[in-house]
Design a protein around this nucleic acid. Structure first.
Lengths: 247, 247
DNA sequence: CGATGGCTTGAGGGTATTCAAGTGACGTGG
DNA sequence: CCACGTCACTTGAATACCCTCAAGCCATCG
C-alpha cells in the first residue's frame, strides 16, 4: 500500500512520453500535447496491493501501466468483488471516466509490483475538445473497447470454465506458433480465475480438465500445449469469433 | 422478412429528424447536419423476423428504432445465438461500427413489428470529423455504452437467474413508484430469457421463484409487484450498483 | 379442426459453487 | 536451523444452480 518512489518527468525523449507514444492512442499525437502531458505527469513505482483509485473517487488522473499488472474491479454490497479487467504493461486506464460526474466507474489496484505513469485527465479532455484528429483516435479507442466488452459478455454466457480458460491461454500466445507451445501464466491463478469469472477451485479443475483432454502439461505457472489445433477447436467452437480472436 | 413500406423523409419538422432530436446524442446538434441526415435517410416499416443487417456486412447505415423492438445478436460456430441487446424505441444502433474495417460487429433483427429510420454512416462520420461539439457528444455516448457493458458483465457473473430477472423488471419501472407497481413485459418471455442469458425454462422457473418469495403476481405478461423494497433488496444486494441503477 | 408457437412443468444430468481439509512453498521469528 | 504462520493452490464431498430432454397446456390462426 506504499509508494516506493516518484519522479517528475524530465523530457519527452524518456520516461512517460516515450511510453505514451508506444500506445496506439497516442501514436502520431501532437508533440506539444505529449510534452504537456509529460510536464504534468509523473511516474511512480507501486508494490502489490496498492490501491490507485476507488470507484466513485473523483477522476482527475488517467494512467498507463509501464510494467507490472493492475486489476480493475468493482465491489458488490455483499462484499464480493468482480474483476472488470487485469491490465498488462502498455495499457491505459482511467481514461474512460472523462465525462459525466467525473468519477471512476471502478477501482484499480496493483496486483504485481508496477511502474505506473499518471497524467491529468484535464489535459486529455482539452486535447479531445480542440484536436479533431486526436478526438477521432479516442473514438476509435472506445469503439475498440466496446467490442472487447461484447466479446467478454459472449464468453461468459456460452463458454464453460475449461473453454474460458483455453481462450485465455490462446490469447497469451502471440501468433501462429508451432507445436508444442510453452507459456507462462502472467499472474496468480487465483486472479486469473476471477478474471474469468470463476472460483479458484473451478479454475484448478478446469486446468486439470485441459490436461486430461488435450494433453496439456502443467508445472506451476508453466504450461506446455501439445497441439494448438486441438486447443483451438476445443475452445473456439462455442464462440462467434473465429480464431485468432483478433484483438 | 419483408419490407412493408418505405418513404423518403420530407422535412426536418416531421419524421426522422424529429425522432433524431429526441435522442440525447442529437440534441442541440447542428440543424444543417440534421437536415442532411434527413434528406439522405429513410423510414421503413418492418415486420417481425426481418433481418436489418448481418454481422460482417459492410456498415453503411446507422439506424434509429422509432417503434417496435430490435435485437442485436451474434451467432457461434455451433449455431447458438447470443443476444447482445434488445432495443426499444428511441435507440440508435449500428453507429459504433464507424471505423475499422467498417463491418457490423453483430446482426440486427426485428423482433416486434418496427418502424426504423436509416441514415448513411458517412454523414455521421463526417460530422464527427468536422464538428468538435458533436464529436464530444459521440464520445460521451460511447463512454455511456461502455459502462452499460461493464454492468452487464457484472450481472451475468454474480447474479443468479431470479436476480437477473428482478433486475430486468426494476429497470422497466420509470421512477420511484408507490406499491403496488403493475407492469407489462415489453416483449416475448423467450426473448427476455436469452437477453438475460438464460434458457426460457429457467426464465419460467425464475419468475415462479419471484412469485413464491416476493409475492409477485403474474398473469400473462402483466406483473404486479407487491413491494418494491423487497424486490430491490432481493435483486440488488449482489450488485455493485445501488438501486436505482442509473442508466 | 389441426397446426403452430409461446409457455410451463417435471425429471434427470452436468457444471460450478461451497465447505472443508490438506499440501507445498515461502518468509519470519524464536 | 527449525517451528510456525501465511499464502497459493489442489482435492474431495455435498450442494445449488442451470441446462437438456420430454411432455403437456393454452391461445392463435389458417
Amino acid at each position: 500500500m506504499n509508494t516506493l518512489s516518484s519522479k517528475k518527468c524530465q523530457s519527452h525523449d524518456e520516461g512517460p512520453t516515450a511510453a505514451l507514444s508506444e500506445l496506439v492512442l497516442f501514436r502520431d499525437a501532437d508533440p506539444a500535447f505529449l510534452t504537456k502531458l509529460n510536464n504534468n505527469g509523473n511516474i511512480q513505482d507501486f508494490s502489490k496491493g496498492h490501491v490507485i483509485f476507488l470507484q466513485d473517487d473523483l477522476a482527475e488522473w488517467f494512467y498507463v501501466v509501464l510494467s507490472g499488472w493492475v486489476k480493475l474491479f468493482r465491489q458488490t454490497l455483499d462484499g464480493d468483488e468482480v474483476i472488470v479487467d487485469v491490465l498488462p504493461a502498455g495499457t491505459i486506464f482511467g481514461e474512460t471516466d472523462l465525462f459525466d460526474n467525473k468519477q471512476y466507474s471502478c477501482s484499480a489496484e496493483v496486483v504485481q509490483d508496477a511502474k505506473i505513469a499518471a497524467y491529468p485527465i484535464s489535459i486529455l479532455r482539452n486535447e479531445i475538445a480542440t484536436n479533431q484528429t486526436f478526438s477521432l483516435k479516442m473514438l476509435k479507442h472506445l469503439v475498440q473497447g466496446q467490442r472487447e466488452k461484447d466479446k467478454e459478455i459472449e464468453h461468459r454466457t456460452i463458454q464453460n470454465a475449461p473453454q474460458r480458460l483455453g481462450c485465455f491461454l490462446l490469447r497469451l500466445i502471440p501468433a501462429k506458433k508451432a507445436n508444442p507451445v510453452v507459456l507462462h501464466l502472467p499472474y496468480d491463478k487465483t486472479l486469473i480465475a476471477s478474471r474469468l469469472g470463476m472460483q479458484s477451485e473451478t479454475f484448478s479443475r478446469a486446468l486439470a480438465r485441459l490436461k486430461d483432454d488435450l494433453g496439456l502439461k502443467v508445472s506451476g505457472s508453466t504450461i506446455e500445449i501439445k497441439s494448438m489445433d486441438e486447443l483451438i477447436s476445443y475452445t473456439c467452437s462455442a464462440c462467434s469469433n473465429a480464431y485468432p480472436c483478433e484483438d
